[in-house]
Amino acid sequence: MPAMSLLDLPSEIIFLIFEYLHKQHIVYSFLELNDDFALTVKCFIRKQFDLTKVNDDIIFQYCLSTVLPLIGSNLRYLSIGYPYCLSTYIKSIETYCPNLDTLTIYCCSQKEDIRHYVAHLIHHELTSLHFIFNHRIIGQQISLRLLDKSRNKEFQKNSIASSSLILHLSSMNDLILLKRYSESDYLPNGLYMIECMLNGEWLTYNKDDLCIMSKKFHYECIFSIKQIDNDQCCLEYELYHEHTQHRLTVLKYDEDEEYWISSSILSTHREESFCLCSTFTFEKINNENQFYIRPCYSNAKHLQVLGKRIIVSVCNNDSILSHHFRFHHISYE
């Protein structure tokens, strides 16, 4: 009886063998064996490919550089992610997988900010967005806000075509950051004058603390605003007084302390400390460049005008004008 090699087996037998193997091992071992095996592998893979079980760097890179270019256009369902960062595979998906219905990603937020995922993956054609933690869907309201935000061109950084996006979160802290991102709005880096809507006066630099002054153009009223990350994905900003280059800060509120203390005043004179907050988000109120300003720490309230100073809010009523600030853009950086 003549010897028979694997190459001589009919495709039906090959399919039965493939049933006992992981797809990533199938493509790594057989996709480039010959044309017949390449066709058999493509037929077996069909429309769904799961790379979440790959823990070998060589196989993972092979899938990105060789497999996706060959089968990516046929895929409708792709799962990918941990322990690999988004930055290692996003270009491959964008280039080779134009027909995805559902993209499932296991986020590696220990290495990458979770907000980078939504910043790079939401787009105006996305119809479904789900966050999963411990095998259950969480943060539905956050998902809805982000879907609404995806219609805005300012939040579209890539064009990965999938109608459904599923993100598996690493921790509940991811959801906290996503909530902050969903409530925040984009502001171009540059120089601004900040108007307090309660009285129409400017936010201004003072030798003691930041105060407000009568509305006239003056260098003391000019502030530099810049996103803290180079990719501009976090929507968190630092504010500097342009003339002195002093950074604006507040101290994080401690619930064990008296509700309002002097440390809650917005200031440029504090020394660095672990309880210092020097980043802020802006939440758009209307189309007239009016925003809420919120310090970036857990449960922080908006800033408000109190007398002649700017403080972390002492109340929950954000509808009053003391919480409203208008940003007048002077120049771009």
Rank of each mutant, 00 (worst) to 15 (best):
M1Y: 14
M4S: 12
M4K: 15
E12F: 13
E12P: 08
F15K: 15
F18G: 01
E19K: 03
E19M: 01
E19W: 00
Y20T: 09
H25T: 07
I26A: 00
F30C: 05
F30V: 02
E32Y: 05
L33W: 02
T40G: 04
V41Q: 01
V41F: 02
F44V: 07
I45G: 05
F49C: 04
K53D: 11
V54Q: 02
D57F: 12
Y62S: 06
C63G: 08
L68M: 06
L68Y: 01
L70V: 15
S73V: 10
L75S: 07
L75G: 07
S79I: 03
Y89L: 08
E94I: 00
D101E: 13
Y106D: 12
C107T: 14
C108I: 14
E112G: 08
R115P: 06
Y117T: 10
V118A: 07
H120A: 13
H123T: 12
E125V: 13
E125H: 13
S128H: 13
F131R: 10
R136Y: 09
I142M: 03
L146Q: 06
L147F: 00
N152T: 05
A161W: 02
S162R: 03
S162G: 03
S164R: 06
S164T: 07
L165S: 00
L167K: 02
H168K: 12
H168N: 12
D174M: 06
L175A: 00
L177W: 09
L177R: 10
L178G: 04
Y181W: 04
L187M: 10
G190Y: 06
Y192S: 00
E195H: 08
E195V: 12
C196Q: 06
T204W: 02
K207S: 12
L210F: 01
F217I: 15
Q227W: 00
Q227N: 02
C233H: 01
C234S: 14
C234G: 05
E236N: 05
L239W: 03
Q245S: 04
V250C: 01
L251S: 12
Y253I: 01
Y253W: 06
E255V: 11
D256T: 15
E258I: 12
Y259W: 11
S262R: 05
I265H: 09
T268H: 13
H269S: 14
F274T: 14
F274E: 14
C275D: 13
F282E: 10
E283A: 10
K284L: 15
Q290E: 14
I293K: 07
R294I: 15
R294W: 11
A300K: 05
L303K: 05
V305G: 05
K308A: 10
C315I: 09
N316C: 11
D318Q: 05
D318F: 01
L321G: 00
R326F: 02
F327C: 02
